[in-house]
Design a protein around this nucleic acid. Structure first.
Lengths: 338, 338
DNA sequence: CTGAAAGCGCTTACAG
DNA sequence: CTGAAAGCGCTTACAG
């Protein structure tokens, strides 16, 4: 059924060394021999067996893909899939396939990513961060396996990372809210264990301070990036005696939840300024359409692929990259006279 | 750096046959020997090398994932990712990892899926269908590699498939529209090369006929499942002298595009009944919120995993499965007196 | 209960 | 320009 190199060699009347050299594009094979062998391989649809090749050559042409941290959503998260998709397109051109580690069995408690990578002998790794990154990521980071982190600051000698400039996200939002006349703004972040969320929060506070604006501690909330938590945190805010009229949520889903809470509690949404983050599809269709900050997922994925390739081919070690976010203005923030 | 079985054997003072048997849970190893070796493996963090294991054992513990057809979106498509995510969770418990084929290089013209699977010696394959399925899928289907199709009717001796009951989708929609008083309904389908779309169309026509309703040929349109095409096709419908007041679109994205077209051309959306298909997140937030048909992606993914596992472990050959869709009623369809 | 040996399908010095 | 041989890291009859 499945032919081996030995059989191809026999069929062509040459040795398997010769066949192997043709497969690997050695240039010291006679043209007629090469042609004859190539024709037979073609005819029988021969493909070398991956594991044999990988074992003998010690390369795999496979990239491990890891969703680090306790993200229940992984593939369901639009940010991840869009980044991954762009990554796949670019890295695919280089001939790499992607191995999606299923952590369910091997890795129930998030341990041992390194062992997993060694097991498969991956040429490199894409690590996309969620919240609560497992410590075992560190071992991988420090190993000799090229790793590229997305939303994760890897520091190893064979690692690099790329992420949106999260500080800029907050400054874009605060600047815009300020211009639109809003002075009292609340923040609904993601989990405190999410470094992304914490960066946004810190930058938010800094930027507010630079305008001389103060933030009440009770206006800073932590959700979990999903809609329901936005609903709950907004509900809490609505119970304050001093209700903030502008809200910056660290995800669109939470912003959407906040809008729902505002409506459900009988307030007029138009009296609130809401800004989300991500620019998911639903943000365009919500009522009101949501002003948000867009991350350039396409670019992040593409760059990640190029940086990883650079490391794998040892063409150099790329520096950490920050990608500019973009404010997407829709109608959930109205102008407010002061 | 990376230990081999030979070194572990030396360290433990046993032969590598013994170590191998312990790795593979043979039961004829003495308890103290087993304990000693296990301890050493643990201590050094030993993991057998995948390619060596796979080469010797002829199994891979890897499932190939193929997005068949010319789908530009693949990972960006919510249906696919949700199905894949559920699939991954279940198959992961069995210890399988997922290999995402990147067709960019190896497979520029969609050929040779079988060779690819043999190259990696995958234990099985998940094939998710888009439009315009490449002929080479057929070879894979007919091979001895267990394959499970999603939205794709595989017929091979080692294949099975699962999909939503697409005929039921149409009957749910037509029944509901009929109940709500709508008699003149147009259909915006996906590409004519999409078998899913064609099944929905045929069932739509049948169901309409069963109510004694006629469909004008010019009310049947073909988009490409994406929003822009829904916008364009609706625009065409609005130019008919006889404008249909009820529209069944084969995807939410197209339904959303249709709503936009209706608004843009100065019509009152509330005078139209719109039904989508998929129940994407944005459908909940649109104005009006979109009535649609939901596919049970979670169940499709889980079942696909279980069926594939059954075939791989040769526990039997599962039958084709159709999963019930569910009508999600929101306000884009109003009651209409006749 | 344990180990020596052959083999999985390929690659790569090395010799000619 | 071509081939014989050793080796990659494991598994599995088989013998003891």
């Amino acid at each position: 059924m499945k032919l081996t190199i030995t059989e191809i060699a026999k069929l062509a009347g040459v040795s398997k060394s010769t066949v192997s050299k043709i497969i690997n594009n050695y240039d010291d094979i006679g043209p007629e021999t090469r042609g004859k062998v190539l024709k037979i391989m073609e005819e029988y649809g021969y493909r070398p067996t991956y594991s044999a090749q990988s074992l003998a050559k010690k390369v795999s042409n496979v990239i491990g893909v890891i969703y680090a941290g306790k993200i229940n959503s992984d593939l369901n998260h639009p940010f991840f899939t869009e980044v991954l998709n762009a990554f796949k397109k670019v890295i695919g051109v280089e001939g790499f396939d992607l191995l999606l580690f299923s952590n369910e069995r091997f890795n129930p408690n998030g341990e041992d990513y390194l062992a997993r990578c060694r097991h498969y002998n991956v040429d490199g790794c894409l690590i996309i961060a969620g919240s609560e990154i497992e410590p075992s990521i560190k071992k991988l980071d420090e190993s000799d396996i090229p790793c590229i982190g997305v939303d994760l600051e890897l520091v190893g000698g064979h690692s690099a990372y790329i992420m949106t400039d999260n500080e800029k996200i907050s400054s874009l939002v605060v600047d815009y809210l300020y211009m639109q006349g809003h002075r009292e703004v609340a923040f609904i972040g993601g989990l405190e264990s999410s470094s992304i969320s914490e960066i946004r929060l810190a930058a938010f506070e800094r930027e507010m301070a630079s305008y001389g604006l103060t933030i009440k501690p009770e206006w800073i909330k932590h959700g979990d990036f999903f809609e329901q938590s936005g609903y709950e945190k907004m509900t809490e805010l609505l119970k304050e005696k001093d209700i903030p009229r502008a809200i910056f949520a660290a995800s669109d889903l939470m912003a959407l939840g906040a809008i729902k809470a505002i409506k459900d509690h009988g307030y007029n949404v138009n009296e609130f300024a809401i800004v989300g983050c991500d620019d998911i599809l639903a943000a365009r269709y919500s009522d009101p359409p949501l002003t948000t900050v867009k991350q350039d997922k396409e670019k992040i994925g593409r760059m990640a692929a190029m940086m990883l390739k650079e490391m794998i081919k040892e063409q150099g070690k790329p520096r950490a990259v920050k990608v500019d976010p973009e404010l997407v203005i829709r109608s959930s923030v109205a102008f407010k006279k002061n």
